[in-house]
Design a protein around this nucleic acid. Structure first.
Lengths: 227, 227
DNA sequence: CTAAAACCTGACCAATTGGTCAAAATTAAT
DNA sequence: ATTAATTTTGACCAATTGGTCAGGTTTTAG
């Protein structure tokens, strides 16, 4: 039952004991969430059918509705996993860390993320493009306050003379845009590098390019690989 | 009849004479294409219904099918307009132009584009996210050869000692990602800057930030507004 | 072992969807 | 003015969709 569950860990409801009360619920919910993420990423909200999700999860359609009620609820559950993931990524930016190192690490982690969980990125991108109708509060509350908190870190770096002043919102926007691009627009990038699928090396080069631009853009010394 | 047509010029079939043979065809096709771009951008391919497109165009649904046959054909027509637009943008990058100036101009033009035609950007983003199933040839032929051509321009700049070497594919990827982000993720950026809608000034600051990072990333002198 | 709780699912349904069509209305050409 | 070509559209259809439900099976608790 862990064909899918081991490949991509969806957090919460996975990797529990194989038996015991509720283990069926846990297993099937994880199965459905995984399938739903795939179908929502490939087809968009409206394009995803509960039948397709059920089929990919290897369960009858009625079972999907048994666990999640409506497609809307299921979509929000998928989104919740993704949003939680999104928020936990900025932890490495702290006041006393080295800006160049911290930013480089963050960018590289985001690129790894684009390679390993492109579907999550695509579901999120789809949601934003369509106006964040299921996510309004997340943006205005959680994400905004997180960015505000991290903005203070950047300001402290500037105050400590560690880097040049820069608008934090635009800095984060560029980082997110550039890194997530390699998940969301993978087909385009792959076509341009002349491969059907991008290699790990392609992703590394992408990360290096982004790190180079961001660090220099902040007046930071770009250490390795820059020559 | 030009309420929509004047606001956003869709190229081909607009701004013809008000009378004469075929003028109805021209007017209605433009009306439908405009409406279709809106609905496809907001709802995605599958989420867009021909009925919704027809309603927004102010025409009965059967009329939409009269002009475009199928939803698929209509979608491709919308996409064709956008792809043509995409290709025409890189003209200002030529061998004998100044790299800093040319790149800055290009980035600024792309950001203006994100502000003025966000719907086109969103339809395109949606198409890429879903795997470019209607656009495969464009990527592998048109876009790839264009990028190859422009890569030679960059190489010539490097050879002339005007800038540092950089992987062109990743450079373009970062530029496209960062600039289009302000159209595709407008709700997110707007939430972060604390506005419901971004202002012209927000877009200008975004462009400046991107220009600063890209130019410095290429070892170019970032002239104005950097300080 | 037994009863309750949890889980399963084929069959079904109302609503929506992309698309068709034939008859009517309008516009163009002679 | 007459004919031909184009345009319009309400009515219709088969297929798909999200969702329901009743009656079943399996799992769990005491």
């Amino acid at each position: 039952m862990s064909e899918t569950a081991t490949k991509e860990n969806l957090g919460k409801e996975v990797e529990k004991e194989e038996t015991g009360p509720g283990h069926i619920r846990l297993r099937n919910r994880a199965l459905i969430l995984q399938a739903a993420e795939e179908v929502f990423a490939e087809q968009g909200y409206r394009g995803a059918t509960t039948a397709a999700i059920a089929e990919r999860a290897g369960l009858p359609k009625a079972n999907v509705h048994y666990y999640f009620g409506t497609k809307e609820t299921l979509y929000r559950a998928v989104l919740d996993d993704i949003l939680a993931l999104w928020l936990g990524e900025l932890d490495r930016l702290t006041e006393d860390s080295d800006p160049a190192e911290a930013l480089a690490d963050y960018i590289k982690a985001k690129v790894v993320h684009s390679r390993e969980r492109p579907l999550a990125s695509r579901v999120y991108a789809n949601e934003m493009i369509r106006g964040a109708k299921h996510t309004g509060d997340f943006l205005k509350n959680d994400l905004k306050s997180l960015v505000k908190r991290k903005s203070r870190v950047l300001e402290s770096w500037v105050a400590q003379g560690k880097m040049e002043p820069i608008d934090p919102v635009h800095l984060f926007s560029v980082i997110w845009a550039a890194t997530q691009h390699y998940a969301d627009f993978e087909v385009q990038v792959a076509a341009l590098v002349g491969r059907r699928q991008m290699t790990a090396r392609d992703f590394d080069e992408a990360a290096d390019t982004i790190v180079r631009m961001v660090l220099r853009g902040c007046g930071l010394h770009y250490g390795k690989a820059a020559e």
